[in-house]
Design a protein around this nucleic acid. Sequence first.
DNA 1: ATTGCTGCAAACTGTTTGCACTTGA
DNA 2: TCAAGTGCAAACAGTTTGCAGCAAT
Lengths: 153, 153
Amino acid sequence: MQPIAFLSLLCYTFNDMSCGQALRGMGYRLTPQRMMVVEALHGADKHVSAEEIYTQVRTKYPYANISTVYRTLELLKELGLVTEIALGDGCVRFHPAEKGHHHHLVCQKCGRIIDLPESALTPLEGVLSDMYQFKADLKHMAVFGLCSQCQGG
Amino acid sequence: MQPIAFLSLLCYTFNDMSCGQALRGMGYRLTPQRMMVVEALHGADKHVSAEEIYTQVRTKYPYANISTVYRTLELLKELGLVTEIALGDGCVRFHPAEKGHHHHLVCQKCGRIIDLPESALTPLEGVLSDMYQFKADLKHMAVFGLCSQCQGG
DNA sequence: ATTGCTGCAAACTGTTTGCACTTGA
DNA sequence: TCAAGTGCAAACAGTTTGCAGCAAT
C-alpha cells in the first residue's frame, strides 16, 4: 500500500479540532500529518516530546517522518498554539496552549513530576515585576528538587 | 613541540586554587588540564559553556581536547564544586559553587541576563515546601521573560 | 495550477564513550 | 609503578535543512 492510499484511510474526525481549525483559519494547510500531531498533543496526559509524538503518529501512519513532526511543532509554536518546556531530560517537551498553563516540580531522584497550578507562581511574578521591572513569562516553568518521598536520609 | 613539552611550560600558580586543592584532597589527580578548566571557570564573569571553556583552555594549550573538558566538568559537578544551569540557549552552562548561588532573569528578546540574589526566591522555596512538601533545589534557576527595555509595544 | 507540505537523506550541535597511550602520585 | 587521566576518533541523541516530488486549497 502506498503512503497516499494509507493516509486516505485515516478518519478525518479531527477536522473540527481547535488547533486544526486555527491552522486553516490562519491560512495554513490542514494536512493529515498535522492533524495527527495535534491529536497526539491533545490526547497525551502529560507533556510530550517530539519523539513521543512521532512514535504515536507512526502507529497510525507508519510513513510519517520525524522532520514533519518537528516542522509542525515549530509552526504551532510560532502561532502560539503550543508551548514548550524543558523538563531537564535532554529534550524539549510540548503542551497545547489551550490546555492552560501550569508549572512543574521535577523530582531529581525519582523523576516524579508534580503539577502546580498557574496561580502558585503569581506572587513571584509580582515580585519580579516590582523589583526588577522584569515581565516574567511563566507559562511553563520547571522547578527541580526532591519530592516528599525522596527527602528521607 | 610536543604536547608534554608544551604543558611543562605552563605555570602552576593555580596549585593553590580552592577547586584544585579540593580535587587533590579528595584523592583525584590535579592535572594541568583540570587546572585550566578550573581557571576558566573562575576567570569568567558569567556562566560558561563547555565549548567556551574549551576555547579558552586551547588558547593556553592547543592540544587540549573537549572530551577532557566534559569529563572534568562532570567530575567537578559530582563533587559539588560546580553547579550547572540551562539558560535556554541549547547548552548547559557551568558556575563554580564557591561563587555562590543566584538566579537569572533571561530576556527572551535581547538575551540580557539579570542576576538575582539567592534570597529573591526563598519565599518561593517556603511555599513549595509548605504546600507540596517539595524541597526545591534552587541553586541556579532561570526565569524567562522580557526585561524592562524590551517590554515596549 | 500553484504553492506549501512531506519524505528522505544528510548535515549539524552538543555530548558521551571505547581504546590505546601517557602521566601524576 | 600503575591506576587514573588524556587524546583521538567515532558514536550518539536531538534537531535542522536542501531538495525533489506530492497534495491541499
